[in-house]
Amino acid sequence: MTTQDTELKAQQSATFAWGPFLRKNGGLVALAVILVFNIIVTPNFLQMQTLFVNISQVATIAIVAMGMTLVIATGGIDLSVGAIMALAGALAPLIFLSEFGQANPALGIAAAIAVPIVAALACGLFNGILVANLKVQPIIATLILFISGRGIAQVLTNGNLQTFSNPSFSYLGTGKVLGLPFQGWLALLIACVLYLVMTRTTFGRYVLAIGGNERAAELSGGPVKRVKIGVYMICGALSGLAGLIVVAINSASDAARNGNLMELDAIAAAVVGGALLQGGRAPIFGAILGAVIIQLVKYTLLANGVEDEVALIAKAIIILAAVYVQQARKE
């Protein structure tokens, strides 16, 4: 996307300013390029199956990336998202497979969703307090749960793979609404809610103000600490939800793998979607766009017989390019 960006910038036509256009809409242009490439090259790309697979894969990245976008908007970062996914994912089967869960299926399912989300919220609260009250750098503050969160999940499950067959819980990951995956709709719903929060509420305004200039936000009466804790809690809750979805897709919970490297995907998606690392911007739909681009790049390479590992290099280049373009724009 951005190599073209710079190329095209060099040959800017007199009639249309390609440079600024691409810099502003680089993500969309990249998406279009990938889509066109796939339609021409990838066999069977234009099929329902492809859409279905990609949506069910992208939903979890997108959900976490939206939380990450809020955190990044305040100038922070959250490395613990993957670990929180593992923790939430480990809790759910423990609850609905327990005696209580077996005896009261409906209550069990409700608890299996509510309790992990509450746990995820608590993780976010922990991160938030460290960052906001103890003034620990976000990278380090969230490193604690990054390291130990997955460990706690493994301790809880004793490192075992928990398999189950529970159709009502699995609906989270395999259900269909209007022929498309349930979690895709869920991600869209969350995006709409967060979009409204960011544009219509005081909370959203303060998030951006803190990222834009924390001193000014505080001197203008912004509740800086509360808002910061809030974004980490939202990010935690969304990560927990994503962890549940992954478990539901697989009908199995593997604390070692659930959400592994998700922090990287989420940060990449947020940055590609236009979030500024220094804060002050929260493009919610951009996060979804970023998640889609990352998923599609992965898919394109896989579908065309390029190994999984090359996809990592591609991801690395995408991230670097996106940040470099941001830097250039700033200067």
């Binding site: 219509r200 509420t201 305004r205 200039n213 001193r215 000014a216 936000a217 009466g221 912004g222 002050g280």
Partner: peptide, 29 residues
């Protein structure tokens, strides 16, 4: 620069920053 403006925010958002609590009803601006 350091304590006043929020550079990337609009004139509107900068202007109403201190007023937000009074402009808000149940969290909504």
């Amino acid at each position: 620069k350091a304590e006043g403006i929020i550079p990337d925010m609009s004139v509107r958002e900068n202007l109403t920053l201190a007023l937000l609590p009074k402009l808000t009803k149940s969290g909504q601006i």
